[in-house]
């Protein structure tokens, strides 16, 4: 728990402004969902505002999860999620897997890959 500020608006007003008052993401994106930005997407993001440009820059050349984007940009998770969902819709970011695999076969394959990945470490 962190109560750095007595006035909670210090934390909230700006994030709220950043998302222009919207707090529901267009698309639900898991914490670990990964995103990438091509050089073209990064260049285009310049015209989408400072915060979106920062996000695109974080994802340039290296896939980053929603959690990493929030951490590197120091945005609260909810704010990062709204902006990232917008950017996916605007084609400023490429979303790789929004939600985890659900089917049995798919899920087993993923777990098997994670297991061998761990053993190789």
């Amino acid at each position: 728990m962190d109560q750095r500020r007595a006035d909670p608006r210090g934390e909230l007003v700006r994030p709220y402004a950043v998302t222009r008052g919207r707090t529901e993401p267009r698309q639900d994106i898991a914490l670990e969902a990964v995103l990438t930005a091509s050089p073209t997407q990064v260049a285009e993001s310049r015209f989408a505002g400072h915060d979106k440009h920062r996000i695109a820059t974080v994802c340039e050349g290296r896939a980053q999860s929603l959690a990493e984007i929030a951490a590197y940009t120091r945005m609260p998770l909810g704010v990062a999620r709204v902006l990232v969902a917008d950017m996916v819709a605007e084609s400023l970011l490429t979303l790789h897997t929004a939600a985890p695999a659900e089917g049995f076969e798919e899920r087993m394959e993923l777990l098997g890959r994670v297991l061998s990945g761990l053993r190789r470490l």
């Binding site: 670990e32 969902a33 990964v34 990438t36 896939a63 999860s65 996916v88 819709a89 084609s91 490429t94 979303l95 790789h96 897997t97 929004a98 695999a101 993923l110 890959r113």
Partner: peptide, 8 residues
């Protein structure tokens, strides 16, 4: 606009 590239 999901791309089935990288899995996490």
């Amino acid at each position: 606009r999901q791309s089935p590239g990288i899995v996490s």
